[in-house]
Design a protein around this nucleic acid. Sequence first.
DNA 1: ATGGTTGAGCGTCAA
Length: 269
Amino acid sequence: MGNTLRVATWNINSLRLRLKLLGQLAAELKPDVICLQETKVPDELFPPHATTELGYEHVAYRGMKGYNGVAIFSRLPLEVLPDTPDWCGKGDCRHLAVRVATPGGPIELHDFYVPAGGDVADREANPKFGHKLDFIAEATEYFRGRQDLKRAIIVGDLNIAPLEHDVWSHKQLLDVVSHTPVETAGLTTWREAGFHDAMRHFVPDDQKLYTWWSYRNRDWKTANRGRRLDHIWVTPDLTPGLRNLTVHTEARDWPQGSDHVPVMLELAV
DNA sequence: ATGGTTGAGCGTCAA
């Protein structure tokens, strides 16, 4: 009934290396829109036919050499939102916002790749951690300034696992970047600036939910030391339309796969 | 406290 939209998000960790896997994602989940992070490809080297060959006629990307990079593939027409902030003034290709033309009206979609923050959870000792906290604070202020926002979705690798059961061991990860109290509080404050956690809408807070398993565990499935670093948030007006969530865990076993797995939300729009 | 692995692209840096 009505129009449903299937929105997927995936930290692909190199677009060019995993084009075939992107095709597998498209075939298995059949998303209408795919948001990618860590594409690691400068715009001038973006594979020109990658999107149309997969059936996505509309594409937007913002990439740079070596690191970062975001891209959005869509079956529906896209319009890139101009004048989005240059977060922390770094020009580092961590955000892309588009307007997706759905039959039910436009949806504003934000694709984020939040800084990982380095290894030491101290902004004095580790500037990368400070950058992460500053990025979160800027994003919070930006969305606080848009209190009227409706029909909007935030997806991406936010590099923070906010809840106790978003990590394999809450106690053992309290000092580990991605699950420290200052980060989880910061991410929650950002989300509460106007969004609902669409993944936890489907999976209760007391159940484990992961989207990332480190490459450094040889047998990731047995160890199962995962974290929920990837997120999908929606504005409250969209919550009655939430229909289904897929965390495509089997993608962690794809040959030469990413350390993140795709997540897809289906919602009536 | 450390190490474990991966990708970009050729130094290491970032994750």
